[in-house]
Every structure is written in C-alpha cells, then in structure tokens.
C-alpha cells in the first residue's frame, strides 16, 4: 500500500510512469488517474513523452499527483510506480529504469508477480489485463483495466473517483463496460511483497531487463548523450541509412508466416512492404526480417495465392 511520500520540501507527491504502445491508450490511462485525483481535491498532471513514434511503437506517459499546486513540468525519471500496459514491451524497454528503490512495478501479464520481483523493490503486482479486456471490452485495450490494479495498490485515489472519471470521459455504454473491467481488475490483481517472495525468484527479472534494447549492433548513442561539440554543423548525419540499427520489429503484435508450398515467388509481398522487411533468399523465396517487420499485414492481404498468414505474437518467453 502506497500512501503519499514526503518530498524534499515536505510536500507529498506521487509519480507514476505508464509504459504502453502508441494507440494503446497509455495517455488516457494517465489522464483518467489524474482526473480522479483532481476530483478528490488534489493537484495532478498527466502528459505523454513527445517523440516521433507512431502507432505500435513503445511510448511512455506520466502522471504526477500532489497535495499542493505542482510547479514541476518535467518528465518523470524516478517514478514511485511503473505500470506496464503491454508485456511484449519487457524485452524492448527497461521498464524499471529509474524506479525508486521502494517503488512498485505493476505489469499486465498472465504470469505471477514473483517473475518480476526485484530485490530493491517493495512490491510487484501482475494482472491479466489483456484477458479481462478481451472478455469484457472485446478488444485488447488494457488502459482502463490496469487502473483497477493501480487503485488496489495505491491508496492515493479512491476507486469511486476513478469510476467517476471514466463516466465523465466515455458515453454511458462504454463507461459501464470499462467500470466492469476496472472492478474485475481490482479484485483479481496479484500483489507480492518483497518479504513474501522466495529468495530464488528474486532478481530473475534482472538479467531480462539488462538485455532489453530497441537497437541492433552498430547503433549510434542516444541523442541525449551527445555533447554540443560532438555535433556536426546543422546536425548533419553522415552515416547514411543508419536507421537500420533501429529495430521496428518490436512494435509488432502480428507476425507474417509464409507457406512455401503455396508461394509462387512473385515478389508482391516484397514490393508492397512499407518497411523494407522482405529479402529474397537464394532459392528465390521472399523472407521477412523480423527486426523490421511491424506486422501491418499488407503482405498477407496482397499475396495473390494466399501463401502468407498473420499469426498473433506470443508474450516473450524469456521471463
């Protein structure tokens, strides 16, 4: 149970970071929680990180709640709580980066929380939000569902206020379904405290986080790592085509699978691929490069002989 923490000036503040994919509603999640806090007379902010990422790409949103007016306008680098809307993000982004030592990790996963426990954390929680969303909302949109888990764990905002915020935001029919999903999540959230965790399962998540990366070998360092005197005039990039080191395959939720027996090697999948993910092998088959394929499904749709099927991506096995 998290209550408000004392900040440096004695003020109480709670900072939450939401990890999702573009289009999954991480920002809506943050906004609803902030709205609920405001309804209770607190002060709150909710905002996304701004970047070039599109539908499907890993994104973050932030929510900051305080008893007093908030003057900070910065992104949250050291959150008290981290929420992960999509388990496939775990192999891509280090979701625990900057998470405070006594912080809480909430993950949408069908697994039990001990898989995600770290020694330095206070609590880890999991909720099979995708299943709840599919059952009740009929779509794999987990943003409101996860707020149920958040309400269960943090005593900062009451469940009733979140319900009010949802009812204000959606029309009656959608609100009712979202509230139903929220309450189911509230009831079904699995919470594990560090003290109750078996020592052998502590830190198994650690090596998994360490491997999380969106880039291939040979990628330049992140933009924030550059010093002013390392930049070319006009920020010219001289390494042509170095975006190849960036793996957009992480955005994928459906995977094209080729049936070689039906394939006529016509190359239609290759020519219509907006992500240059197809390469021809020596036998003349076009094979997809999973580092780049975003899973749009154009190849399967356009294949003249129906040799490509889109299959659902599985949750990363390594956890």
């Amino acid at each position: 149970m998290v209550v408000f923490k004392k900040g440096k000036g004695g003020e109480k503040v709670l900072e939450i970071r939401f990890h999702g994919r573009g289009g999954q509603g991480a920002v809506t999640s943050a906004e609803l929680f902030a709205q609920a806090a405001i309804m209770e007379g607190k002060y709150a902010q909710a905002f996304p990180s701004f970047g070039p990422e599109r539908r499907g790409a890993p994104v973050v949103a932030f929510c900051r709640i305080d008893d007093r007016p908030i003057f900070l306008r910065t992104e949250i680098n050291e959150p008290d709580i981290v929420m992960v809307l999509d388990p496939s993000l775990l192999s891509v982004v280090d979701v625990t980066a900057g998470l405070k030592d006594d912080g809480i990790l909430i993950i949408n996963s069908e697994k039990e929380p001990h898989h995600f426990m770290l020694e330095r954390l206070e609590q880890a929680a999991t909720i099979n939000a995708t299943q709840i969303a599919l059952d009740i909302l009929k779509r794999p949109i987990t943003n409101t569902v996860l707020l149920g888990a958040l309400a269960r764990i943090s005593a900062v905002v009451k469940m009733e206020s979140i319900i009010d915020a949802i009812e204000q935001r959606f029309d009656a029919k959608n609100a009712a379904r979202n509230v139903q999903a929220l309450q189911k999540a509230f009831a079904e959230t699995l919470i594990l405290s560090k003290n109750d965790c078996k020592p052998e399962s502590l830190n198994s998540f650690q090596k998994y986080i360490a491997a999380a990366s969106t880039t291939r070998e040979g990628a330049p360092k992140a933009d924030s790592e550059y010093l002013w005197n390392e930049l070319q005039p006009g920020c010219v990039v001289t390494d042509a085509g170095n975006a190849k080191s960036f793996r957009t395959g992480d955005w994928r939720s459906f995977l094209p699978v080729l049936n070689k027996e039906r394939c006529i090697r016509c190359g239609v999948c290759w020519v219509f691929c907006p992500d240059m993910a197809y390469r021809q092998d020596q036998e003349g088959y076009y094979l997809v490069d999973l580092d780049y394929c975003k899973g749009c499904g154009i190849c399967a749709q356009e294949c003249p002989v129906g040799a490509i099927q889109m299959e659902m991506e599985k949750e990363a096995d390594a956890v």
């Binding site: 599109r54 539908r55 499907g56 790409a57 085509g241 975006a243 907006p274 240059m276 580092d291």
Partner: peptide, 8 residues
C-alpha cells in the same frame, strides 16, 4: 532504409 518510424 528500414528502421524508419512510420505507422503500421
């Protein structure tokens, strides 16, 4: 080159 960040 691939690795650009357009939508699906």
């Amino acid at each position: 080159a691939p690795g650009h960040r357009s939508c699906l």
